[in-house]
Design a protein around this nucleic acid. Structure first.
Lengths: 72, 72
DNA sequence: ACATATTGCAATATATATTTTACATTGAGA
DNA sequence: TCTCAATGTAAAATATATATTGCAATATGT
């Protein structure tokens, strides 16, 4: 799951450990999300947003890859 | 987990079943999300967004409830 | 009233996010 | 070089999202 968590965290001057504590998860969870090996829950996404003062779209939006079979 | 999925789905003229098929999950999953009894994954949130042509912020953003212990 | 589509919900099973603990690696500073 | 903070990662355990099946309840149209 692509995201901009690492950039946002560094911009906020937080370590993985500090961000993890702020949002109430483990450092490993933050690490795996930054490495884009996890598909985090909406709740966790929101709490990360709050911690770094950004929005869901800013941190987690990714454009839909083109699919050719759209309905009208 | 608060969200605007039900309104967006109806506005798109989709049934729960149709939305479920579009995003590749079960109708029950859609039902529970609309009833706000689940904490869906980011991937599923994104696919719902694509299906109804809206963004994460539009469908899933909720303001942080006030906490009195903010750092500076 | 009847038929049908749509939705709510319950029980069990499965997949996977998250935790816990622990260790290795990297980089910065003394 | 030595230390230490920060990060990457691995294995096993736990929590929970999601699937599956099925049935009840509620529309909606005829």
């Amino acid at each position: 799951m692509k995201n901009n968590v690492k950039m946002a965290r560094i911009r906020s001057g937080l370590t993985q450990q500090q961000l993890a504590e702020k949002v109430g998860v483990t450092r490993q969870t933050i690490s795996l999300i930054e490495k884009e090996k996890y598909n985090p829950s909406l709740k966790l996404c929101l709490e990360i947003c709050y911690a770094v003062h950004q929005t869901l779209d800013e941190l987690f939006w990714v454009e839909k890859e083109d699919v050719s079979d759209e309905k009208s």
